[in-house]
Nucleic acid binder design. Structure first.
Lengths: 115, 115
DNA sequence: TGTCGTACTACGACCGTCGTAGTAAATATA
DNA sequence: TATATTTACTACGACGGTCGTAGTACGACA
């Protein structure tokens, strides 16, 4: 079975993460699980990729973090919520996706051309 | 208008170049023009990206080069032809594309969810 | 004479992703 | 009770495809 390589998914992690933050604020572990489940195990994001995406996107103003301090055992959990700039970024990435899809599909041959 | 970023196209250059080599051997400048025309100016591959893709794919055995020595003015032109391994690579990348497309589209919201 | 098109090569910077490792508490399993 | 697994991160350097910049050289056209 084909697997999704990092080169191919690169550039789409933003859109995936932001999509999940559209409905409600969330945090690393939950996002990671949601990606796994929603993609039906077809894409499992690496932890380091996810957390570095958070850092990058917060720097860019696409998301904002806040900490839940009231957890059992004094544990802390960092939540992220999408900003207006983040929604705008999502829109533009979605447009880019549509365009890219159109382009790539011009270079997909049917099996006949491959023999 | 949205533009295709390098992060988003990364990983698809192989498939694009190999597709064009499926029908006949070709060379850098011609491939570059074909990409521009076939994509209706939506994707213009950078020269350095294209030539480094050639080098990489030849190392990987996906393409083979040969030189046309008989050009006017003693100029030389390097052609590339796709190998069997290249066709196999194309097939597997095409499968990966199908899978990736399915996954990404699960994370595309319609405009309503964005308000 | 100069610009444009053709057809490359060289080289280092960039940056998103990945591999590896470490920390630590809560929960499940034996 | 002891151990493994799950949860929830952080740190840091390596990797590699893409890009920016620069340079070379010939032909055609104005």
């Amino acid at each position: 079975m084909a697997e999704i390589s990092s080169d191919v998914i690169r550039g789409y992690n933003d859109i995936i993460i932001l999509y999940l933050l559209l409905s409600k604020p969330s945090y690393g572990y939950e996002i990671s699980k949601q990606i796994r489940v929603l993609s039906e195990e077809k894409y499992i994001i690496k932890e380091t990729t996810l957390y570095s995406a958070f850092t990058r996107m917060e720097k860019n103003g696409f998301i904002e973090s806040f900490v839940d301090e009231d957890m059992a055992g004094g544990k802390k959990r960092t939540y992220y919520r999408i900003t207006e700039a983040g929604k705008e970024h999502y829109r533009s990435k979605r447009e880019e996706w549509t365009l890219t899809k159109e382009v790539i599909e011009k270079f997909i041959a049917d099996e006949g051309a491959l023999v």
